[in-house]
Design a protein around this nucleic acid. Structure first.
Lengths: 220, 220, 220, 220
DNA sequence: AATGAATGAGGCTTCATTCAT
DNA sequence: GATGAATGAAGCCTCATTCAT
C-alpha cells in the first residue's frame, strides 16, 4: 500500500510555494506581491503558506539564497573547465550572461527587486552583491598572481566589474524588445578584459556595434 | 516692514515638503515612507501636502527629476572645463563621485531607491539610467571621433561604465564605515579608461590598494 | 453534537453584514453610511467585510438586487392568484403597498436611497424602475388585449403608474406620523384604474377622504 | 465717474456662484460636487464662496428654493390664463412638462438630486414635493367644487399625480436619447384626467403610441 | 497539515471649512 | 471683499498575520 512519504509530500508543497513565490516576486516585485497571490499560484491557502513559512519575508530570503547558490554554482562549474586565469574570467562573464539569458525571471528577482523589498533586505542584498564581486575578485587575484594582468586594486575592479555586468543585464531585462543578451557578450567581454589590463593580443579585436543588433534602448 | 511675498511663502513651504520627502525617501525608501511622515517632517498637515502635490508619487517624481538635473548639470559643468576627450571623461567620472561623496542622500535617492518605488517607476528609473549612460556615450563617441580611443561599441561600453560607477557608489552608500568615496576614484578611473582602450601612457600608473584604505566591505 | 457547517457559518456572517448594511443604508443613506458603521453593526471588523464583499458598492448592489427580487416575487405571486386582467393589476398594486407597509426599511432602500448613492448607481436605479414599470406594463397590455380597457400608450401609462405608487409610498415613508399605508390603497386603486380607462362599474365607488385618516402631511 | 454700485457688484458675484453651483449640482449631484468645482466654474476662489455663503449646504438650499419658486411661478401664470377647472389642470401639467423640456438641468436639480444630498435635505425635499402636490390639489379641489369631476380624495390623487409627472420627467432625464418630452404630454394628460374622473368627452381620444416616438427606454 | 474566515493597523486621498494676508 | 494656503477629520481599501476548525 504505497503511501506517499509525508516528508516528500510536504516538500513538494513547500516547493510549489517557493516556485509560485519566485515567479510572483520576479514578475510583480516583493511589495506588490500579496501572500494571497502566492497562495493562489501555488494552489494552496494562505494558511498553508504560513504553515511552511513563518513570514512573507522568510520566503523571499530563502528564495534569494537558493537562487544565488544556483547561480554561483553555475559560474563555478563553468570556470572549473578552464585553467588559464583570463579564460576563467571570460568563462565567468559568459556563464552569468548565459544563465540570465535563459532565465530572465531569475535575473529579475536577483538584481532588480532587491531594493523593492525595502530596508529589511538591504543587508541581504549587499551580501549577494558582495558574494559575486568576491567571486570575481578571486579570479582577478589569480590572474594577477599568474602575471596575466598587472597588479591593481582588484577589490574596486571587481566591484566595478560586477556593476558593469549587472547594469547590462538589468538594461536588457527592462527593455521592451530585449533582443539576445548574448549579443552583448563580445563587447562587454572586451571592455572588462581591457579594464583589467589584459594584453591587447589576448583581448583580440574590439567588436563594433552590429547595425540592427544594437543594445536595446529603453522604449518611450 | 518687508512682508513676505506670498508666492515666496508658498514656495518655501513647498520646498520644505520636498526637503522632508527627499530625506525620508532616501532614509526609509519610497514604500516605507508614509505621507504622514513627510507631513510631520515638514511640519505641515497631510492636507497641506496634497495642496502642493497631487499624489505621493508626484513628489517622488519631482524629486527624481530635479535631483537628476542637478547631477547632470554638475557633470556638464565639470566636463566643460576640459577640451581633450579623455580628460572630459575623467572629469565626468570625478564629478559624479565628488557630488555623491558630498551628498550621500542624493545618491541614495537616485540610485538605490528607484526600484523600491515599485513597478510604477521602472520607466522613470530606466530613463534616469538611460540619461546618464547616454551622457557617457556622448563623451566616448567624442573620444572615438578624436582618435583618442579606438572604435568600439560605445553603447554597451557606456552602459557598463554607468553600471560600474553606480555599483561603486552604491557599495559605498551601504557600507557601515563608508570611508572616503574619492579614495576609489584613482582605481575606478584607471579601470574605466583602460576598458575604453585609452593608451597606457595616458592612463598612467595603475593604483594599488592602499593598506587601511581598502574599499569598504559590507558589514556583518 | 452537531457542528455548524462552515459554509453555513460563513453565510450567516455574510448575511449579518448584509442585514447591517441594509438597515444602515436605509437609515442613513448610502453616502452617509461608513463601512465602519456596517462593520460595527454586524459585529465584525472592516476587514471581515472586505473578505465577503469586494467594495462598499458591491454590498449596495447586492442589496438592491435581492430586495427588488423579493418584491417582484411577491407581486408576481399575488398576481398569479388572479385571472381577470384588471384584478391582476389590482393585486399588483395591493401587493406593493402591503409589502412596503410591512417593510418600511425595504421601501426606503429601494425607492428613496437610490440616488443618494450618487452617479454610479443611476444606471442601476433606472433598471430597477424600468423593471417595475415593465411589470406593470405587462398587466396593462394584457388588460388591453382582453378588452378590459381601451387601447392606450401602455408605456407611458405604466411609467406614470409606477411614479404614482412610488410617490405615495415615499411620502408615507417620510411622514412623521405615518399612519397606515394601506389606508391609501382604495383611493390610489381607484385613481389608477380610472387612469387606465377601467369602466366605472368595475372601479366602483370613489372613496372619499376619511376624516382623521387623511394621507399624512410632511411635518414642520 | 460711474462707479459700480458695490452692492450690484457683489450681487453679480453672488449670482455667478449660484449659477455655477446650479449647473454643477445638476450635472454631478450634490455630493459629487466639490466647493472647488463651484469656485472654478464661477471664476472665484473658495474663500470667495465662503464670503457669500455660510456653507455648501446653504448654496444648495437657496438654489432649491428659488428654482422651485420659478417653476411654481410659471405654473401659476399658465394656469391663470384659464378659467375652466379642468383646463387649469391641463395647463398646469403642460407648464411643468414644457418648462422641464426647456430646462433639463433645472429638472435634474429639483427632482433627481434631492436625495443625493443626503439626510439633511429630506425635509427640504419633502416641502418641495408637498408644495407641488398642494398646488395640484388646489386645482383638483376647484374642479370638484365646480362639479367638473366627482368628489374624491384629492389629497392622495394629487400626490399620485405629482408622482406620475415626476417619474415621466425623471425617466426622460435619464434616457440616453431623450426624444422630446412634450411627446409624452398627450398620453400623460389623458391618463391624469381620466384618473380624476374627468368625463370621457372632455378627455377626448386616447392617444396611442406613435411608432418611432415611443417613450425612451433606459439604455443598456 | 491545511483551510478560509477574521482581524486591525495602516495607507493614500478627498474635501468642507478656516484664516492670515 | 477676495485669495489661496492650510487644516484635519473621515473615508475606502489592502494585506500580513492569526486562529478556530
Amino acid at each position: 500500500m504505497a503511501r506517499i512519504d509525508p516528508t516528500e509530500q510536504s516538500r513538494s508543497r513547500r516547493e510549489r510555494i517557493l516556485d509560485a513565490a519566485f515567479s510572483a516576486f520576479a514578475t510583480r516585485g516583493y511589495r506588490d506581491t500579496a501572500v494571497d497571490d502566492i497562495a493562489d499560484a501555488a494552489e494552496t491557502s494562505k494558511g498553508g503558506i504560513y504553515f511552511h513559512f513563518k513570514t512573507k519575508e522568510a520566503i523571499f530570503r530563502e528564495l534569494m539564497d537558493t537562487t544565488a547558490d544556483k547561480l554561483v554554482g553555475k559560474v563555478e562549474r563553468a570556470v572549473a573547465t578552464e585553467t588559464e586565469p583570463v579564460a576563467k574570467a571570460e568563462a565567468a562573464i559568459h556563464a552569468v550572461l548565459a544563465t540570465f539569458a535563459g532565465h530572465r525571471t531569475m535575473a529579475r528577482l536577483l538584481f532588480l527587486d532587491t531594493m523593492g523589498a525595502g530596508r529589511v533586505f538591504q543587508a541581504e542584498t549587499q551580501q549577494l552583491h558582495e558574494r559575486f564581486s568576491r567571486l570575481i575578485q578571486g579570479y582577478l587575484d589569480e590572474a594577477v598572481a599568474a602575471d596575466a594582468v598587472p597588479p591593481m586594486d582588484t577589490r574596486i575592479t571587481s566591484v566595478a566589474w560586477f556593476g558593469a555586468i549587472n547594469e547590462v543585464v538589468a538594461r536588457w531585462l527592462l527593455a521592451d524588445k530585449p533582443g539576445r543578451l548574448e549579443d552583448a557578450y563580445p563587447s562587454l567581454r572586451a571592455m572588462l578584459l581591457r579594464s583589467a589590463g589584459v594584453a591587447a593580443e589576448r583581448v583580440g579585436e574590439i567588436p563594433l556595434p552590429v547595425p540592427g543588433h544594437e543594445f536595446p534602448d529603453s522604449a518611450r
